[in-house]
Simulated scan of single mutants.
Amino acid sequence: MAERRVVVIGYDAAELLDIACVTTALEAANWQGATPAYRVSLAATGGRPITCGTGLTLQVQESLERVLGPLDTLVVVGGIGHEAAAGDRLILGHVRRLARESRRTASVCTGAGILAAAGLLDGRRATTHWQWADAIAARNPDVVFDPGPIFIRDGNTITSAGVTSALDLTLALIEEDHGPELARRVARNLVIYMQRPGNQAQMSMFTTAPPVADGLVRRIVDHIKGDLSGDLSTTTLSAAAGVSERHLTRLFLRHVGRTPGRFVRQARIEAAAHLLAGTSLPVAVVAARCGFGTAETLRQAFVDRYGIPPSRYRSVNSSTSVSGNTAAATMSSPGT
């Protein structure tokens, strides 16, 4: 193979960062000696310049109508113009055509909605920006959308989450093509201190959830966050709330979208993930502090949620590790 030809499909009001993360990382791979090298181009209908959602105008290299395969990789980006693009028959027709002529097809952010509208995600698992996941899923009931992971691979189709997760996706593609050492060199060149695994959650429950409106539930949530190592069984929590277990469960489902038990488990996993990434505490100590009791219980929880054990999670995400020793990204699907 003389080169790996990559075509990025853009459109008016596409997200500039979606495009730049992919194209810059692939060109950085070329600078670092990728063999065969990537030949990257931006294509749009009519070969006309596109005005990104940020207001900046990009000159494209190819007219979408004239792009011919075979391609190594087809990438469809997202942006505030994704809904119009997903309703454009011309764009969808060429996306379908080029996907058939590509070794693999990927989307960034809300570009998954375009792949879905083209019928390329039917029967597959996919992800997209967490903020748009419900709306895109509602329009595409034949696709199993999971807004949690940073990216998901299903066969030769890879979908990624919002905006800068395109870097994680592209680094994983580089690793797949050229091995982990080149991917690490690219990450260092781009001053990325870590390479996140695809099954790492896009957003934390502690930063994305709005304040709980119900005073009783908010009090119990604060209690959980402040005492992760304590007894947080539904029985104990309902006694602290002064209501029955059944009523507390109803309140949690209504106001936080999950049962008390599931909320506690996720809170503990996220707290443990934070300690593993940000401290050098032994895994057994992290497990005890976060209410798992034993390192084995913590390991099982991490494998269920992230598909990797705590030690692997730490090696990939540790802010104290040297970037050159960062483990490579994984494209495995998350546990439920």
Rank of each mutant, 00 (worst) to 15 (best):
F252P: 02
V212H: 07
L17W: 00
A328P: 14
T105R: 08
D18R: 04
P309V: 13
A137D: 11
L253N: 12
A14Y: 01
I192L: 13
R299Y: 01
L251P: 09
G307N: 13
M203V: 15
T127M: 14
I224H: 08
S238W: 01
I308V: 12
L251C: 05
N140D: 07
G215S: 09
T57R: 15
A327I: 10
N30E: 06
L16R: 09
V303P: 01
D146V: 13
Q202A: 15
D168G: 09
S315M: 13
R100A: 14
S229I: 12
P210G: 10
A135Q: 13
K225I: 08
R124M: 09
L251N: 04
L275G: 00
I174F: 06
L120C: 02
H274C: 13
A271S: 15
Q200M: 15
D18I: 07
N189M: 13
Y313M: 02
G93V: 02
P310H: 08
A116R: 08
F206E: 09
V22I: 15
D222V: 09
I19H: 00
L115N: 01
D146C: 11
E3T: 14
C290M: 03
G33K: 05
A328D: 10
I174S: 08
N140E: 10
L216S: 00
P210M: 12
R258N: 08
V186H: 04
R262T: 06
G162V: 03
L298N: 10
R246T: 03
R89Q: 12
N325K: 06
A20Y: 00
I220N: 02
V60E: 09
S63W: 10
V285Q: 11
R219K: 14
V303W: 15
R289K: 12
L276D: 07
R188G: 14
V221I: 12
L275C: 05
E3C: 13
C290P: 09
S323N: 10
